[in-house]
Amino acid sequence: MAVVGEEYCDAEERVLTVRKTSHFSPGDGFAAYDHRTGGLAFRADTYGRGHGGGAASAGELALLGPTGEALVTVRRRRPSLHQRWEGFLGARVDGQKPLFSARRSSILGGAAAGAVVELLAPLSTSFSCAHAAAELRVDGSFPRRCCRLVVPNAESGAGEAVVAEIRRKVDEGARVVMGRDVFVLRVSAGFDAAFAMGIVLVLDQIAGDAGEDFPMAKIW
């Protein structure tokens, strides 16, 4: 299922270690490292200094590849009771139509209530596979680093598939569960890892710093 590009759809499950690199504002600093190679796979940066402000360029977030190329740009759509965010392919330009839209599942459920992701732009032919759907769902709690991205099975009309999952990072050598600033993103075989990271940026914006912090914990 290619959304950003076929090159981000691995034949095997892809595991990324994601580290939050800034604590001044949610979402304005992330680095994701490939578990197999240890190399940088993605990073995130803001456009402009007016994070969350009213200007079109302020508060935009860019998901970048390892060499700095813009893969996805996300920005908040205003006004929006559900905290609706839009994602654009590459570096957004005026008049460009969004690739996807994401919003909090409910205005009553708080930041940990999950999210709904709607795909808007035409996708590649691989999108007609069994996992294809116009709408995806995020179940669980991103602030607790325990959630998953679910796609309904469009062909059978029943069942669903988990295409990406976020869990807390465990240092097996030290037997320590890391704090929530370091977590694991598992992307299923054939699913777009760049798109999954774009959803992570949106979830971080929706959740902010909601919920309690989770320090490192020893596994006994």
Rank of each mutant, 00 (worst) to 15 (best):
D171T: 03
S156W: 04
E160H: 14
E172R: 10
V117E: 02
S124W: 06
S124M: 09
A154F: 11
P122N: 08
G159N: 10
A154V: 11
G140T: 06
P143C: 01
V117F: 07
D171R: 02
V170D: 02
E118C: 11
C129P: 01
L119K: 12
R145F: 00
E172Y: 08
L120R: 15
V177D: 00
F127C: 12
L120F: 03
R148I: 01
V170K: 08
I166C: 10
S124K: 11
P152K: 07
F142N: 01
N153G: 10
V176H: 00
L149C: 09
L120Y: 04
P122F: 06
E172G: 00
L120V: 15
C147I: 01
R175D: 09
A158C: 11
V176Q: 10
C146E: 11
F142G: 03
L119G: 04
V150N: 03
I166F: 12
H131D: 13
A130H: 13
L123W: 06
L119H: 10
R144V: 02
V150E: 02
S141M: 08
R175Q: 12
A164Q: 04
P143H: 04
R148K: 14
V117N: 05
M178L: 09
L136Y: 10
R148Q: 15
L120H: 09
C129T: 12
E165F: 01
C146D: 14
D171G: 03
E135P: 02
L120I: 14
R137C: 03
F142D: 05
V162I: 14
D139F: 10
S128M: 12
A161L: 10
I166E: 00
G173Q: 11
V116H: 11
V138R: 05
V176N: 07
A134M: 13
R148C: 13
F142S: 01
A158T: 14
R167T: 13
V163W: 04
S126V: 05
A134V: 03
G179S: 13
M178S: 11
S128A: 13
G159W: 08
V150L: 11
C129R: 11
R168F: 01
A121L: 08
R168W: 00
E118F: 00
G157T: 10
V150R: 09
G157L: 13
V116F: 01
A115T: 04
A164F: 08
T125L: 14
S156Q: 12
F127S: 15
L123H: 08
E135M: 13
E172W: 09
G159R: 09
R167D: 09
V177C: 06
R175W: 05
A132W: 12
S156P: 01
L136R: 04
T125F: 14
R168M: 10
I166R: 00
A161W: 09
V138A: 04
A132I: 01
T125A: 15
E172P: 00
S156G: 14
L149D: 01
R168L: 07
L149K: 08
V150Q: 05
A113H: 03
G159S: 09
A133C: 14
A113S: 15
P122W: 03
A121Q: 13
G159Q: 03
T125N: 12
V176E: 12
L119T: 06
P152N: 05
S141T: 09
A154I: 10
V163E: 08
D171M: 02
R168V: 00
G159D: 03
G140Y: 07
R148P: 00
E155D: 08
L123F: 08
